[in-house]
């Protein structure tokens, strides 16, 4: 799926909706029927790992109005011959790129977050609106933030910069900036913001980032799972494969919208070959909402 996000030109596409549409087209053209492929259809079963089962509709209902946007799979790796990774477990500086792209950020692929019934209904409404071609105008469509944890899923490079007392994530997408303040507590009354108040510490070779005070206009994920301002995220980052990859365990907790906390795992690849590009959402804001509904123009 690298065609969706690794080519120079596609990365210039500024709006999430445009990106999603472009990637969907690639998916349709490039992997048609892949989900239906069965091991029996292959002549070399052993060489082809079976893709794990994943629902393609919400709750695997088969209801086409609840169709989930297919994920991007694979991708993100540095090309052969790239500069070797830095094995220092506490030096995360450099450019990283998430592998794959899930539109639903639940505890397993194709599974929604454990939303309380009221918020599960809202997710269903949003998925149905999307499948009708009139998706809700979410924050990123309006050149506001992707919010968290959705931002960490965005298929764009992330440059990490480490300075005394700080780890900074510079996202190419919408030039979002996360400032992680090391070894200090959250302020007693943190200002509500889209990316929240983030504090970090090292536990052995794992960076633990704790984030609170997140604006509730953003969604947990692209499909539209709701969170409240009481969303609490814990991210655990650890270098693996000698520094060629960064493992992220994301724990999501929200006493307002979720039945219980849950976690998911992601891999980000070391990308010494990538230099973040300029990304100006406002340049391409042709999806200004009309009465709260995005109308493609």
């Amino acid at each position: 799926m690298s065609g969706c996000h690794s080519s120079h030109g596609m990365r210039r596409v500024a709006l999430g909706l445009s990106l999603a549409a472009g990637c969907l087209a690639v998916l349709a053209a490039g992997t048609g029927g892949a989900d239906q492929q069965t091991p029996a259809a292959s002549t070399s079963d052993r060489a082809q790992p079976q893709r794990p089962f994943r629902p393609t509709t919400l709750f695997n209902s088969g209801d086409p109005t609840l169709a989930l946007t297919p994920p991007l799979l694979g991708g993100g790796r540095a090309p052969p011959g790239s500069a070797p990774p830095n094995p220092d477990p506490r030096d995360l500086e450099g450019v990283w790129w998430v592998q794959g792209y899930e539109y639903l950020l639940g505890p397993a692929p194709g599974v929604p977050p454990p939303l309380k019934p009221k918020y599960m209904q809202i997710l269903e409404q949003r998925i149905r609106a999307k499948n009708r071609g009139t998706p809700e105008a979410d924050t990123e469509t309006q050149c506001l933030s992707h919010g968290m944890p959705r931002l960490m899923e965005s298929p764009y490079p992330i440059e990490i910069v480490q300075t005394p007392g700080r780890i900074t994530f510079l996202h190419e997408v919408a030039h979002e900036v996360r400032r992680i303040w090391m070894n200090r507590p959250h302020p007693p009354h943190p200002r509500i913001s889209f990316l929240g108040d983030s504090v970090g510490r090292w536990q052995g070779d794992t960076l633990i980032v704790d984030t609170v005070a997140i604006d509730d206009r953003s969604f947990i994920d692209d499909e539209g799972s709701s969170h409240s301002t009481r969303l609490h995220l814990v991210e655990r980052y650890r270098k693996i494969d000698g520094g060629a990859a960064l493992e992220l365990i994301m724990t999501v907790e929200d006493p307002v919208t979720l039945e219980h906390a849950y976690s998911y795992r992601r891999i980000l690849h070391w990308r010494p070959d990538v230099r973040p590009e300029e990304y100006i959402c406002e340049e391409n804001n042709r999806n200004a909402p009309v009465n709260g509904i995005t109308v493609a123009k």
Binding site: Q142, L144, S145, V177, F194, E282, A288
Partner: peptide, 21 residues
């Protein structure tokens, strides 16, 4: 001084409540 998060479109929407630009 710690730089707060700022989204220009958010500020603009507050001053242009209709959301149209």
């Amino acid at each position: 001084y710690e730089i707060p998060e700022e989204f220009c479109m958010d500020a603009l929407r507050r001053t242009h409540p209709a959301g149209h630009l």
